[in-house]
């Protein structure tokens, strides 16, 4: 291991009085005193949220307004602090536009007191149904208020453009005559 000997120059007399350094410091702070302020005044001014920001996890719908989540519970499984609770349910056959989906969440709760905004749920979701979007401030007066239920999650999530069209493909196949 190379040893680098750093030579310490003895301080000059002036340096030992501290005075030039103090003057220099005062100069620096004075510059800042008159410099424009850098603070973002939060409630009135909002930060620009960059793309890929990990805000509150939300559920999204596909462009046809259909629920994308199929309650596979992979997000529940992967969530490190166990913030997600899902009650799966069956989608009845008479829901024409989702007949092939079979399964969807009956209840979907995310406890925002537990969530650590890690984004693993978004990463793991095979249906691209859960997204951490730009909502960054969550507050409430009770613990119960801090649990986002399914309705709220969809309200926060809205609709995202969807690259998945498998349900539509299924429908097309059915119409094409592949049904038995």
């Amino acid at each position: 291991m190379a040893v680098i000997t750093v030579e310490r120059k003895p301080l000059t007399f002036l340096e030992r009085t501290y005075l030039p350094q103090i003057a220099g410091g005062l100069k620096t702070t004075f510059k800042h005193l008159i410099a424009p302020k850098k603070t973002l005044e939060y409630p009135e001014q909002r930060p620009a949220i960059p793309v890929g920001y990990r805000g509150v996890p939300t559920l999204v719908k596909d462009p046809n307004g259909r629920e994308k989540c199929v309650s596979c519970q992979l997000c529940e499984f992967v969530c490190p602090p166990k913030a997600i609770r899902i009650t799966a349910g069956e989608i009845p056959a008479d829901q024409a536009d989702r007949a092939h989906v079979e399964k969807g969440p009956q209840a979907f709760d995310i406890d925002m007191l537990r969530c650590i905004y890690c984004g693993l749920c978004q990463e793991v979701c095979p249906e691209e149904a859960i997204f951490l979007q730009n909502q960054f401030s969550m507050s409430g007066y009770t613990r119960a208020e801090m649990v986002n239920h399914k309705d709220r999650l969809y309200e926060l999530g809205g609709t995202l453009p969807d690259a998945h069209h498998k349900w539509d493909k299924k429908k097309a196949a059915e119409e094409h005559g592949n049904a038995h």
């Binding site: 056959a93 007949a99 092939h100 299924k170 097309a172 592949n178 049904a179 038995h180």
Partner: peptide, 9 residues
């Protein structure tokens, strides 16, 4: 090609 569609339930 398109997959088969069979009864689901």
């Amino acid at each position: 090609e398109q997959k088969n569609v069979k009864p689901k339930r």
